[in-house]
Structures are given as C-alpha cells and as structure tokens.
C-alpha cells in the first residue's frame, strides 16, 4: 500500500503541471507585434519637420531654418513611454512562460555522484540515473506550478492597466498620428494644385509634378495602412489578454488553449502583413 504513495504523489503533482506554451506563444507574438512601433518610421516629430519643410518650400525659402517641434517631441516621448511599458510587460511574460526556464539540468549532479569516491558508501549507477530523472520531473512540476500561480496573479494584477495602456497607444497612433497624415495630404494637395495650374510651368514639368505628388500620397497611404495594422494588432492583444484574464485560473483547459492559439495566429498574421508593407515601401 505504502509503495503506491509516491506514485499518487507524482500523479498529483504532474496533474498540476502547466503547459504554458500557449501563454508563451501569445506573449511572444504580442511582443513581436508591439515592437513594430519601432518600424513605423513616422512620428509626431517627423510630421512637424515635414510640415515645417513644406512651409519653407511654399515660401520659396532657400535657406532652411530650424524647425521648432517641442510639443511634438513631448507627444513622441509619451507614446514611447507607453510603448516601453507594454513591451516590458510582455517580454517579462514571455520569459516567465518559456518552458525551457524550468528544464533544469541534473547532469552535473549525476556525474558527481557516479564518479565520486565516497569511501565505504556504494552508489548504484542505475539508481542515480533514475533518481536524477525523477528529481527533474518533480522539480519541473513544482516550479511549473509555482510559475502558473505567479503568472495567474500577474495577469490578474495587470489586466486593467495593460488594457488602458494598449488602448492609449492605439488612440495616439490611430486617432492622432495617422490623422496628421491626413493633414499632410491636404497640405500637399493644396501645394501641388497650385503648381499644376501655374501657367509658367511647361507640360513636361507638370507631368513630373503630378508624378511626384502621386509618389508622396502613395507613401502617405502606406504609412496610414501600417499604423492601422499596428492599431489592429494592439486591439487583438488587448482582447487576448482579456481572455487570459477571464481564464487565468484554468490555463490548462483545452478551450482557452484553442482561443489563445487563435489570438496568437491573428497577431502573427498582422505582423506578417505589417512586414510586407514595410518591404513594399
């Protein structure tokens, strides 16, 4: 009877053992998607510089004067602050849910026990291997349970805050930064319209001007698409995190694994689409 106790104990512990792979997939894909912020190649400051340069061009100013973009720099600083906080959180979650983290190596201990001369004490090499294996499984089971508990707590503590931050970054990018591109488009339209109706300009020059205008507006559209995709990614991450939060006490359940897989794959698709747009530029 007593010999069954360790077996039941092992089953009990392994039952609580977590497969955090889905959490890890979700966190690492979220990190990848969030990091696209660095590839947006557009910012409030850049918008300000471009506006200022166009004004100088319109005024036929030969010598460039320095553009004052203090307010825009501040707006970028705030967006960057939000971005870094979100990125740090998901990187931390990725590290903590990584399965390799609790795959401990017992080789050194096994080797020391096998090769050591312990005087009269005789150690059976087969037993050492078996104990090492069991120790590995038990250590992993215990540390994985600990990890699961911690991750559940952190998801619970962070959910409201991370959603607010994701929403704020999405708002700053999609509702503010992207709209500055609409402003730029109108400025360009006005500027190039005047050139296109200028009677002192030849037909050939006008064609060149139209080509230039089309290139610039295409560039604006690509940037807008990038920002929209980035925003979509942030929304998906927020929804995925909410799902994690709702199921934080049953991270092993099949249903949550399936739903998380869906979010991870959607986020991965957005990252791929974003990279495609980046290459097209």
């Amino acid at each position: 009877m007593y010999s069954y106790i360790p077996f039941f104990f092992l089953i009990f512990i392994l039952g609580g053992c977590v497969n955090l792979k889905k959490v890890n997939d979700f966190s690492s894909n979220s990190t990848k998607s969030i990091k696209n912020f660095e590839d947006l190649e557009y910012s409030f400051t850049k918008a300000c510089i471009e506006k200022c340069e166009l004004e100088q061009l319109e005024n036929n100013q030969i010598q460039k004067t320095k553009c004052e973009c203090k307010s825009e720099k501040e707006a970028d600083k705030i967006s960057s602050l939000i971005y870094k906080a979100i990125k740090g959180y998901f990187e931390g979650m990725t590290n903590l849910s990584e399965n390799k983290l609790t795959t401990y190596k017992f080789n050194a201990l096994t080797k020391a026990l096998k090769e050591g001369d312990f005087g009269d004490i005789q150690l059976n090499k087969k037993h050492i291997d078996s104990y090492a294996k069991i120790s590995g499984i038990l250590t992993r089971a215990i540390t994985d349970s600990y990890r699961k508990r911690k991750i559940s707590t952190y998801i619970g503590d962070a959910n409201d805050a991370i959603k607010i931050l994701l929403e704020a970054l999405e708002f700053n990018m999609v509702s503010n930064l992207s709209k500055k591109l609409d402003v730029k488009k109108q400025r360009l339209e006005s500027y190039y319209f005047d050139l296109s109706v200028d009677t002192t300009i030849t037909g050939f020059e006008k064609k060149k001007i139209i080509e230039e205008y089309n290139t610039l507006t295409d560039e604006i559209d690509t940037r807008k698409d990038q920002i929209a995709l980035y925003g979509k990614g942030l929304n998906n991450i927020a929804a995925g995190h909410q799902k994690l939060y709702d199921n934080r006490n049953k991270l092993n359940a099949g249903e949550i694994k399936e739903q998380l897989s869906q979010y991870s794959s959607d986020i991965q698709d957005i990252v791929d689409e974003f990279n495609k747009l980046k290459k097209e530029k």
């Binding site: 602050l81 939000i82 740090g88 805050a161 991370i162 704020a168 700053n172 509702s175």
Partner: peptide, 21 residues
C-alpha cells in the same frame, strides 16, 4: 492631434505605474 496625444498622459499615469510594478 498633438495636444491630444500629450494629454493622454493624464489618463494613464496610474496604469503605467501598475504595469511597471
């Protein structure tokens, strides 16, 4: 748009601190 992007800081201060923690 720029002012709005700056003003968002008022809404996120507590959340930023929570996430950092």
């Amino acid at each position: 748009y720029t002012t709005s992007a700056k003003l968002i800081m008022d809404d996120i201060q507590t959340s930023l601190e929570t996430i950092k923690e």
